[in-house]
Structures are given as structure tokens and as C-alpha cells.
Amino acid sequence: MGASGWDTTLTLIQRIAERLPITLSILLLSLLFGLLLGFGIAVVRIQRRPIPYALATCYISFMRCTPTIVQLFLVYYGLPQLLMLAGVDVNGWDKLIFAVITFSLHSAAYFSEVIRSAYLAVGIGQLEAAYSIGMSSGQMLRRIVLPQAFGIAIPNLGNNVLILLKETSLAFSIGITDMMGQVQIILGNNYGANSLRMYMIVALMYWVLSAALERAFVGMEKRYRKGRVTLAG
């Protein structure tokens, strides 16, 4: 690759990187709301009250068994029509909002199972011991369940965050100019020129982001488990 080729590559990297904040915004907002909703669904599934449990189970099944891009189109095209029936006009909303809603709803189904499995892994014996010494439910959760469950959940939580990052690349399909959206704009303006180079660049950028997140979660797990007694111990 000559000097002009390297200059072109650096220019393309810079132009794609300009949209990194959009990608990260979608990721962080979807992660926040996905965790909150996932926690609520996990509580419903743990309590196992018949009707809420059945609804939560159907929700998880639908979100896990349908393509994310289909869910994105359902929210983007269907939500405005649904809210219009209630007299609410959301056609002026930023497209980013629809993307965050979709990825939050989608990721919540997976986060709920991570949270539920981590809670159940703590063990009924510890819960009974906490009640036997007079702890309230709040004290039990704060002092026994949540500290252990969080440590158990970190690896699976990290895996799901990586999946969420990759799925945010679908946001360009509704016209959001994130990193993938920027790639499509550049290719469109240049009639598909340098398409292989463009896709290699954006693939490497997602790889670097994913590797950084993976290291962050590995480091978080090590720091959290340091000095703690594991369940196996």
C-alpha cells in the first residue's frame, strides 16, 4: 500500500471514528435500561406468580427467538402507530430513541436470565441461614445475595454486553449514522469504492472495542473476587 493508500485509510478511519460516540451512546443507554428491565423480569421469574411469570416467560421467548433487526423494525414502524391510537404522536422522536428502546427490550430478555441464574446460584441454604438469624429480606439481599450474585453474573454479563455492542451495528438500518451508518454513507457517496477496505476497518474497530470491553470485565471480575470467599470455597 503506497503513501496515498495509507492516507486514504487514515482518513476513512477518522471519518468512521467520528461516529463512535453515537455507537457508544446506543450501547450505554441500552445497557442501562436493559439491566433495569432485566432485573424486574428476573424478580418476576424468581417469585413465580402464575400470570406475571407466564407473561415474562413469553416475553423472553419472543425476544430470544426473533431476529433483532425484525424487532428494530417493529419498534420503529409499529410503536408510532400503536401510540397514535392513544393520541400520542412520536413521529418527531429522534431515531436514536427507537434504537435504544429496541436494544433495551432485546437485551433485557438475556440480562434477566443472567440475573436470575446468578440469584439462584447463591443457594437456598444461605437464604434460610439469613432468615434464621433475623435478617430482613432487604438485609439478606444487600449483605448476602447481591454481593455473591454480582460476582457470579460478571462473566455472563460481559458476554451479553459484547453481543449488545455488535447488535448496535443494526441501527444504521433505520437511518442512524453510527459507525456502520457512516460506512454506508461513504460507500454510497463513492459508488462502492474501497468497500473491502471500509468493511475491514469497521470490523477492526468493533474488534478493538470488544477486546477493550472484554478486558474491562475480566479485570472487574478479578478485582471483585479478590479477597472474597467463593461459593466453592
Rank of each mutant, 00 (worst) to 15 (best):
10 L>R: 08
218 V>L: 15
136 S>R: 13
101 I>R: 15
131 Y>A: 12
109 A>H: 07
71 Q>C: 05
204 L>T: 01
227 G>R: 11
200 M>G: 01
154 I>P: 03
63 M>L: 15
101 I>W: 00
181 G>W: 04
120 L>C: 07
133 I>L: 06
118 A>S: 12
113 E>A: 03
39 F>I: 09
111 F>Q: 05
230 T>C: 05
155 P>R: 00
69 I>Y: 13
8 T>N: 10
36 L>I: 13
218 V>W: 09
53 Y>H: 12
43 V>S: 07
79 L>E: 04
115 I>V: 11
167 E>S: 00
44 V>Y: 12
127 L>A: 11
67 P>S: 01
215 R>G: 11
82 L>A: 11
182 Q>K: 06
73 F>A: 00
35 L>T: 06
45 R>H: 10
180 M>H: 01
96 L>E: 11
83 L>A: 07
84 M>C: 05
159 N>Q: 14
43 V>R: 14
37 L>Q: 03
119 Y>V: 01
115 I>R: 14
68 T>D: 05
39 F>P: 02
210 S>W: 06
35 L>M: 09
226 K>N: 14
93 W>I: 02
126 Q>T: 09
226 K>F: 15
44 V>E: 08
56 A>M: 10
116 R>I: 02
9 T>E: 10
22 I>C: 09
2 G>P: 13
195 S>D: 02
180 M>Q: 01
47 Q>Y: 14
13 I>Y: 08
233 G>N: 05
149 A>S: 10
160 N>Q: 13
22 I>M: 15
146 L>H: 14
153 A>T: 09
184 Q>F: 14
70 V>F: 07
81 Q>G: 15
95 K>F: 01
178 D>A: 08
